[in-house]
């Protein structure tokens, strides 16, 4: 499962690259787990390592 950590500053790059439009950002990113396809693109694109994957 994708988890957004406290480090998130809200730059929204994850939202821009998410193919499922599962991310909403207002100050911090929030993932809609129902919509998330677990492609991990947000994790790879996050410039400050604020996204992690938890089994």
């Amino acid at each position: 499962m994708i988890v957004i950590t406290e480090r998130c500053v809200g730059c929204a790059i994850c939202m821009l690259v998410c193919p499922a439009e599962a991310i909403r950002v207002e100050g911090k990113a929030e993932v809609n787990i129902e919509k998330c396809e677990s492609c991990k693109k947000c994790l790879i694109y996050c410039p400050i390592n604020a996204v992690s994957w938890v089994e």
């Binding site: 500053v9 809200g10 730059c11 950002v25 400050i48 604020a50």
Partner: peptide, 11 residues
Amino acid sequence: LAIQSFSDGWP
């Protein structure tokens, strides 16, 4: 479309 805040690691 987007609200983007910039600080700390991405200021």
